[in-house]
Design a protein around this nucleic acid. Structure first.
Lengths: 245, 245
DNA sequence: AGACTTTTAAATGTCAGACAATTAAAATCT
DNA sequence: AGATTTTAATTGTCTGACATTTAAAAGTCT
């Protein structure tokens, strides 16, 4: 692990990069303790604050964790699926909000990915996954449910569908797409009328998954996508009309 | 933006969180300049090194960039698709290498996602995408190609296929799955014989995409997945046998 | 007046040294 | 032996300073 003190890049960035490479390259294994900050400072010939900045960069990516006290220090973190989810959701959310991604584009991606999961879910879903889906459908029919709660339940339903595929890599990939869409979906405030249609789609989906019928699930997702996009177009049009009066 | 000095969490982590929330919540918009480190230190009632650690955390996530000099400072970064790709690839790679994800699981996820793109790609691919795919197929037939170069070309081919869908969100999601698989794929050193089979699949795929035939593309991907998994199983079996002698 | 050069000031990048807080292990005592 | 105290290592934070970079302001020359 070496750095180039004459490089224009920040020393802390270089140090973080060197350690990151060591982790990715397998030179530092999970739960291994890094040298203490003082030792790292010595090794790289920099001051402790500089080393600390480097370590914070790595901590921000969940690559390391730190513990205080004797026999404390920085340890290589096992990147859990949960951590990865969280990061992906943050990144995806920002990506969508900062890059003027159209609703249609985001929607297309989300449903394309979800359709990829559906056949596997139809094959492998457990009773648990089905129960979650049914429970969320039930919740979505409660009259007093706020729009936010309805959207959250919507996410939970689709999450269960995706998790039904029992493939953590797929779940991880989908988490970003589905959850990052939520702010956009929230923009489309669902009226009481449209909730009924969505519950119908969800019921059809749950039935198909329960029956192990991939093609029906696929078709239901297809129509749900159409419906969602139409709904979005109407909401946009209504807003535009309102803005012009 | 406030923090709780009595919280057990590191101050720098709290400050980073507060600023991150401000960015995600839209209180800080793209390219807006954050207060100077001294001002932030004053605002949060902490020292400048602590503020700097917080800023480095955000910089590690590409949420901000910093500039030195007069009228310099920290600016909210537009999270580009490129930045997001890079982060996703790093995260996905670590996730796979640290969590004992089976080859089958990763493979299933990758092809499921890719199949989600194929129909869109068949519909919308440009001449450019097709040309890239053809060029990579051609490269894959060069006799002197190293295994690493073959794998890289394989990734480039599938990347072009995915990009053909012309949906940046999909491309972003897939980038992680496809590129993170590369180390695993490299483990399966392709022999000269298996290269021919893979080139045949690629040709079939390119033809299907060119003809706009989604179902043929889907079927080709299906068989390529089968083939890849069989190949992996054989390689593993051969290794196990060798280890037992 | 206009173009070029120099100065200045603001900001980040880095360093040194200190102290506080935490924690596990070692030492001590009962 | 077991409980308690001490100790030492380590991260977390602060203060103050200097270096470096950079844009803008001031000054100078034509």
């Amino acid at each position: 692990m070496k750095i180039d003190p004459s490089s224009p890049a920040d020393l802390s960035a270089q140090i973080a990069g060197a350690i990151r490479d060591a982790i990715i390259g397998g030179d530092l294994i999970v739960d291994e303790r890094l040298p203490s900050e003082a030792e790292l400072a010595d090794h790289f010939n920099v001051s402790r604050p500089t080393v600390r900045e480097a370590l914070k960069r790595l901590a921000a990516q969940s690559l390391i964790r730190t513990q205080r006290g004797a026999s404390g220090g920085a340890f290589v973190n096992r990147l859990s699926f949960e951590n990865a989810y969280a990061q992906q959701i943050t990144t995806s959310t920002l990506l969508l909000s900062m890059n003027a991604v159209s609703f249609d584009t985001a929607c297309e991606a989300r449903f394309a990915l979800e359709r990829a999961c559906a056949p596997l879910s139809a094959l492998r879903r457990t009773a648990d996954h089905l129960a979650t889906m049914r429970a969320e459908i039930h919740r979505q029919q409660q009259p007093g449910l706020t729009d936010e709660a309805f959207c959250a339940s919507d996410v939970a339903f689709h999450r269960a569908l995706v998790d039904g595929a029992s493939n953590p890599v797929l779940s991880y990939q989908l988490a970003g797409a589905v959850e990052a869409m939520q702010p956009l979906m929230n923009m489309i405030t669902f009226t009481a009328r449209s909730r009924g249609a969505i519950v119908a789609f969800h019921t059809e989906l749950a039935d198909a998954i329960e029956a192990g019928d991939a093609s029906v699930a696929d078709s239901a997702l297809d129509r749900l996508e159409d419906y969602t996009r139409t709904l979005a177009r109407d909401v946009m049009a209504a807003r535009a009309a309102k803005a012009n009066t």
